[in-house]
Design a protein around this nucleic acid. Structure first.
Length: 841
RNA sequence: GCGGACAUGGCGGAAUUGGCAGACGCACUGGAUUUAGGUUCCAGCGGUUUCACCGUGGGGGUUCAAGUCCCCCUGUCCGCACCA
């Protein structure tokens, strides 16, 4: 038999699949459909990362299995190509971003093709294609027409390096998610999308979809629903200050109030405040703090008391002071709180610092030492008519009381904020709106879409926060579609998340120029049956696209309320840290130990030299560490089949895993052994008696494991089977089944071997093997026999044999007899087909 | 601080959900083939004082039986973070 020549085999079958259009999704809508989806990549200049194929291969396996099971499968791929890195590269190298995008896509595409992924390339999409973003703009216009897009002057997150506004979701620990630079607050007029209008539905409908739990809980957490009450406090100025609280039960314990530095009432009261200068100074200080500084100082509370105005507690008439402090946010609730230091950690810290009274209203802790925040066990005290109630009872009673008196009511709040939707950059979808002095903001007529990005001389972002499109007067100056008067175009563009918020719909009917997709296609293909992607998109892309989809559902464009039936998530592929002690070559380890006394000293030295990360043997791949694994080289050295198999075998799919240049060899050996087994095939149309159970078990295990993304154990099972076939012999029927099971994982080599068997059809489109559950069990089974819980012997019994028979066989065993000799068997447990345990004394 | 996940050989990881811990692979050790290296094949591979005992981060508990269930502790990772 010839040598396993993976290079020519892989090239050959990729060409055949392409020529035969083997993986094109069919348009026969009477067949059962399956829509498998992976997140389309941002085509960066760095090319494909070894992390990309982990997700793509896993769902490729699912898609290939579904095809073999007879489904009409849609497994598409495209490009999320708008975005800053491309624009920055274009600026630096004086090329048009469209040109950069084209080159990057070409590279990505050839890399993906080399992996043998069964994408339907006829349906390839690109978010920067005007025929695509025409519909992104169209959806935006529908949002605008329904009042869900609005422009607002507000404090926004401004990345000092990207010179661009960021969404809340793009700010991580006070710095830019993308570039890590400082993010500051700036007041700017921005387009906003009212995602908050969908907050409750985005929570509720999670009950109807099959997402892994951590995705659901992270989304719920991000939306942040809380229930409580709004309470009106009158003030000595007569104005009413409304607060939001989740603990209305503690109202009797409110000993002061705090308002946010941005609260409008401050300027209203300016004349009445004896210390207005101090208050203004404090407000200025707070405004100039970056998000980073504000979160840095979490522990230390600052604030200024409003001297001259006091509030009145509505339940007991007590006059209480009002403070300004930046621990109260203008963007949540009403921007004002009632402070109950006895039962809230932050209020407690503030009260201690400013020496304010702490009044216990829920019994159960020592409120002079720490706030008592437990809601489950406490009993109300010092609270008039609430005394003696539990916290839950008191919440209900006080809310009813406030409602009756007209000074409060139950209220639900969400942490979720509206989506800041404009960016002051070039490489994004133009926002299709025109501003007319007479008519205000007017949509570009739908017949004029797409509104194309004009060519500009400079893509440079500007320090004053204007879009690079702003100086393009020819483009900017237009006429009002409404009244014909001179008007100006919006020059901001959409954020990168726009194009990806609906792309899965376009795959269903990618060439339609009359609608984003036809009704029939939307009805047939949707919703996505299985969507896999990264955890980092849980609160961004995944939430945004659910929002857009619900909106499209509301206006009758799509016929179902959730876009994705099932969502799973893969772990990252990490690299070895070359600076970590355990990864050093042995001689270097020795040298360091000698130099610094012991391993501890050597490690300390490495931490001093390279920082804390030296203690982590496994880290993210990065150019600076030189631990980036190049997929092209890996495919060149081992082949795509080996690479696919290894990425699936590397570990638990949901957890991050470290790439090992050594471990990949095991997968290559496995394929070589499958190849070599070909020479040992005996004739036979049915499984041999010796292998039958193993065959059925393997089919069952592989079939089930694929559904649960347990690819590592599916492969282990096939390896076990292969070992047995080497041991016990293999016939044609067995070999055919092995090839079919392995095909989704290693499609090229199995296709080649299939052809070598004399088959003329494509294995990729052949039927998936079936198993008979009754044939997955052996007729006899070896059972461990324990004495007092310790294994003392083993007996071979017929499967499902009677308990007394099993017990008799165990007692007859010589080893067991000696283990229980001279003792009394006081109890015997027989679990059929599992274990026998004798309790002796 | 709040929420979630996790802890098993030298390493990645299995364990039918309470029933023989360490499947499968990597690395390693011996042997065979080979001029040699690589490849391939055979055997071994948790620990120890090896006819046995001890072993799933540590301590307690439930049970005939615990990696798996309960309580406490320690550690790691992730998400959110002054959200009232």
């Amino acid at each position: 038999m010839e040598k396993y020549d993976y290079k020519s085999i892989e090239a050959k079958w990729q060409k055949v699949w392409d020529e035969k259009q083997a993986f094109a999704a069919g348009t026969d809508y009477s067949k059962p459909k399956y829509y498998a989806l992976v997140e389309f990549p941002y085509p960066s200049g760095a090319g494909l990362h070894v992390g990309h194929p982990r997700s793509y291969t896993a769902l490729d396996i699912v898609a290939r299995k579904r095809r073999m099971q007879g489904y009409n499968v849609l497994y598409p791929m495209g490009w999320d190509a708008f975005g800053l890195p491309t624009e920055n590269f274009a600026i630096k190298n004086h090329v048009h971003p469209a040109e950069v995008t084209k080159q990057n896509i070409a590279r990505f595409k050839s890399q993906l093709r080399a992996l043998g992924l069964s994408f339907d390339w006829n349906r390839e999409i690109n978010t920067t294609d005007p025929d695509y973003y025409k519909w992104t703009q169209w959806i935006f216009l529908q949002l605008f027409k329904k009042g869900l897009a609005y422009k607002k002057e507000m404090a926004v997150n401004w990345c000092t390096s990207c010179k661009c506004v960021l969404a809340n979701e793009e700010v991580v620990n006070g710095v830019c998610e993308r570039c890590g630079s400082e993010v500051v607050r700036r007041n700017k007029s921005q387009w906003m999308l009212k995602i908050t209008a969908y907050a409750q539905r985005l929570i509720d409908d999670l009950d109807d979809v099959d997402y892994i739990d951590r995705v659901k809980s992270q989304q719920r957490n991000w939306i942040g629903r809380s229930t409580g009450a709004e309470v009106d406090f009158t003030t000595t100025e007569g104005d009413v200050l409304t607060v939001y609280t989740t603990r209305p039960d503690t109202l009797f314990g409110a000993t002061y109030m705090v308002i946010s530095p941005e609260h409008p009432v401050i300027e209203k009261w300016a004349d009445k405040l004896n210390n207005i200068d101090d208050v203004r100074a404090y407000r200025e200080e707070a405004a100039h703090k970056s998000d980073f500084e504000r979160t840095e100082l979490v522990k230390d509370k600052t604030g200024v008391r409003l001297d001259g105005v006091r509030a009145v507690n509505p339940v007991n008439g007590t006059e209480i002071p009002i403070f300004v402090s930046d621990y109260v946010l203008m963007t949540y609730g009403t921007g004002a709180i009632m402070a109950v230091p006895a039962h809230d950690d932050r209020d407690w810290a503030f009260a201690k610092k400013f020496d304010l009274p702490i009044v216990e209203v829920v019994k159960g802790g020592n409120v002079q030492e720490a706030a008592f925040t437990d809601c489950a066990t406490g009993v109300m005290v010092n609270s008039g008519f609430l005394d003696g109630m539990s916290v839950e009872e008191a919440k209900k009673a006080i809310t009813e009381f406030l409602t009756e008196k007209g000074v409060g009511h139950a209220k639900v709040n969400y942490k979720l904020r509206d989506w800041v939707f404009s960016r002051q950059r070039y490489w994004g979808e133009p926002i299709p709106l025109v501003h007319c002095d007479k008519c205000g903001w007017v949509p570009v007529p739908e017949s004029e879409l797409p509104l194309r990005l004009p060519d500009v001389d400079s893509y440079e972002p500007t320090d004053d926060g204007e879009s690079p499109l702003a100086p393009m007067t020819d483009w900017v100056n237009t006429t009002c579609p409404c009244c014909g008067a001179p008007a100006k175009r919006e020059t901001d563009t959409m954020p990168q998340w726009a194009g990806s918020s609906w792309y899965f719909l376009r795959y269903m009917d990618p060439h339609n120029d009359e609608a984003l997709a036809s009704k029939e296609a939307l009805e047939y293909w949707g919703p996505v049956d299985w969507y896999n992607g990264g955890m980092e998109h849980t609160t961004l892309h995944l939430l945004y696209s659910r929002f857009w989809h619900k909106f499209l559902y509301d206006i009758g464009v799509v016929p179902y309320k959730e876009p994705y039936s099932k969502r799973t998530s893969h772990g990252m592929i990490l690299g070895q840290n070359p600076h970590s002690f355990v990864n050093l070559p042995e001689d270097e380890k020795k040298a360091l130990i000698e130099q610094f006394g012991d391993e501890k000293g050597a490690r300390r030295h490495l931490v001093e030299k390279y920082g804390e990360m030296a203690e982590h043997p496994v880290v993210k791949m990065s150019k600076s560490l030189g631990n980036v694994v190049n997929p092209d080289e890996t495919i060149d050295e081992y082949g795509a089949d080996t690479m696919r198999l290894y990425e699936m075998f590397i570990g638990d799919f949901e957890k991050s895993a470290a790439w090992s240049q050594k471990a990949i060899k095991g997968c290559r050996r496995f394929i070589e052994r499958v190849w070599s087994l070909f020479d040992k095939i005996q004739p036979g149309d049915a499984y041999s008696a010796e292998n039958e159970v193993a065959m059925h078990r393997t089919i069952q295990k592989v079939s089930e494991d694929i559904e649960n993304l347990k690819m590592n154990t599916a492969i282990a099972q096939m390896m076990t089977l292969l070992n047995q076939l080497y041991d016990k012999g293999v016939n044609r029927a067995e070999y055919r089944t092995l090839l079919a099971l392995l095909n989704p994982f290693a499609p090229h080599v199995t296709e080649e071997l299939w052809q070598m068997l004399g088959e003329s059809d494509l294995l990729s489109l052949h039927t998936w093997p079936s198993f008979d559950e009754s044939k997955t069990v052996e007729s006899t089974i070896e059972i461990a026999v324990q004495v007092n819980g310790k294994v003392k012997g083993k007996v071979v019994l017929p499967t499902d044999c009677a308990k007394d028979e099993a017990l008799a066989a165990a007692m007859a065993d010589a080893k067991i007899q000696s283990a229980i000799a001279g003792k009394n068997v006081v109890k015997s447990i027989v679990v059929p087909n599992k274990i026998i345990n004798l309790v002796v004394r």
